[in-house]
């Protein structure tokens, strides 16, 4: 009996699906009703159920048993044997049996999530993102960019195609739609000499969100949901913004706010997780 229980316990530890229900010890008083010392052994069964709580840690490990865990979860029912101990009114040990009842509370396998254990380094990167619209607006080799890293960005590997895209935009817009603005300039001969890329590069290269705790949050100091990040980015790509690059055309990075973005439909929550339900 003892050996069987320990075997069950071992399996239960792996399964570990009932951990959170551990607090259910109220049945203990029933045990107090009893006086039959020998039956205390049943109480020990209950202790097995208590160990089931430890099993929750095993779930965290999750590296193990995979699909078989579902079946292991059924072992939680074995913990219910401990409840028998309580019902038996077997001395003080019966209280331990009450812990066993915890095992009975668990649905077999429920909550015992199984995760892949492959080394992250072996996965194939499909997408990456930080600065909004960078890939979509100014990157030509989109898949390669998505599979790449900020380390590559920092080598200015994408500066050439960013500059070519900026030239596209300015050729299309400067003479008419941006006629009332002072656009920044693009230099196709010496890409890094252009005012536009001098403005854009510090913002989007490398492609990450810089979050400075010593300054108020708000794009481009990080990106808060609801920030007009696209319109700010468009201003930096299209207009000659004061304080950015080498020339000052009298614009601020906020001069296009409202062009394409007004307000999100989603009501942002004031507390975690912030994003609104559908």
């Amino acid at each position: 009996m003892r050996t069987l229980l320990m075997t069950t316990l071992a399996a239960f530890l792996v399964a570990g699906c009932e951990g959170p229900e551990g607090p259910e010890g109220p049945q203990g008083p029933q045990g107090a009703q009893g006086e039959q010392g020998p039956a205390g052994a049943d109480g020990a069964d209950g202790a097995d159920g208590e160990d089931g709580a430890d099993g929750a840690d095993g779930a965290d490990g999750s590296d193990g048993a995979d699909g078989a865990n579902g079946a292991d979860g059924a072992n939680g029912a074995d913990g219910a044997n401990g409840a028998d101990g309580a019902n038996g009114a077997d001395g003080a040990n019966g209280a331990d049996g009450a812990n066993g009842a915890d095992g009975a509370d668990g649905d077999p396998g429920a909550g015992n999530f199984v995760f892949m254990t492959d080394d992250p380094a072996t996965y194939l990167q499909v997408d990456r993102s930080a600065m909004p619209a960078v890939n979509t607006a100014v990157i030509a080799s989109k898949d390669a960019y998505n599979e790449d890293t900020p380390a590559t960005d920092a080598t200015l590997a994408y500066a050439g195609e960013i500059n070519a895209s900026l030239d596209f935009l300015h050729t299309a817009l400067d003479a008419d739609d941006l006629a009332t603005f002072t656009p920044c300039s693009v230099d196709l001969v010496d890409p890094l000499a252009g005012e536009c890329i001098q403005q854009a590069a510090p913002l989007v290269v490398p492609d990450w969100h810089s979050v400075d705790y010593t300054s108020p949050a708000g794009f481009p100091n990080g990106r808060v949901p609801g920030d007009p990040a696209i319109d700010i980015t468009l201003a930096v790509l299209l207009l000659d913004v004061d304080g950015l690059g080498s020339t000052n055309g009298g614009h601020t990075a906020g001069d296009l706010i409202g062009l394409s973005q007004t307000a999100d439909d989603g009501i942002m929550l004031s507390t975690f997780p912030f994003l609104a339900a559908p």
Binding site: D127, A130, P132, T136, N146, N221, G222, R223, V224
Partner: peptide, 23 residues
């Protein structure tokens, strides 16, 4: 902001990132 930014990601919605925020 990052929807449909590349053919490979667009073909696989579960790993197609739309936006990343940090603040």
């Amino acid at each position: 902001a990052d929807h449909i930014d590349g053919p490979n990601a667009a073909a696989d919605p579960a790993v197609d990132i739309t936006d990343v925020f940090a603040w």
